[in-house]
Amino acid sequence: MGWFLVRGWAFLVYLFMFLPVAVVVLLSFNASQFGSFPMTGVSLRWFAELFSNEAILRAFRTSFILGLCTAMISTVLGVLASMALVRYKVPGRAVISMLLIAPILIPEVVLAVALLLFLNFLSLNKSFGMLLMGHVVFTLPFVVLVVQARLVAIKREYEEAALSLGANPVQTFFQITLPLMAPAIFAGMLFAFTISFDDITGTLFWKPGGVETVPTQIFAMLRNSISPEINALGTVMILLTVGLPLLGAAIARRMAGKINT
């Protein structure tokens, strides 16, 4: 009886969380003028309209470029930081590790304001570069966590064997360590991309005037009216931010399966 209640509650909680999402997806196919029930028919009209809306397309492009750049930079930095922390006994490892992870623990608003104040202090203007920098700061911890966990699990002997066979440390890194880390690097990159793509809080603070990412664009649109286009946009976002990591996880699993250390 007790367990039945617990299960019932859990079910309700999930329902409460996912029902709105389901409603958005459902309504995005609604043929009606208004972005709400009742459904008057199934159509792709709002998707068509979405893809002819210049502002939204621009926002998509911005988000993509921002996400890609963030993923690239975060991954490179994250891999380097992980190598330094795990493989080389840099002094103050614990502290550096803490600082790298900290952006996850600090509320994003605080982080956003802090970075803004810092740049003001340096009297720099808001720019795409600064937005990118912000995204890198708070996606880096995820990359570091994922890559570090993997690196710890890769036995030193593989690298030592490569060195003993005549590969220098750089060759060893590219021939042995990097390929063995690849699944984690790939996963970290996807994490960074989706987190950047999804982000709104930091982006609102950091973006220069006139630049919109998809989330800030939705936000802006919502302030005027609730167009059914937003439902369609939401559906696309859900597809991207849920689908990409799932796809990535599947690919990473296959890669790991082949390597299987």
Partner: peptide, 20 residues
């Protein structure tokens, strides 16, 4: 002389064959 210039053959306890 670093290890990669010593021209040694090493066999490790758990073999350390490159899995990839």
């Amino acid at each position: 002389l670093p290890i990669y210039k010593r021209n040694l053959g090493i066999v490790f306890q758990n073999y350390a064959l490159f899995p990839h």
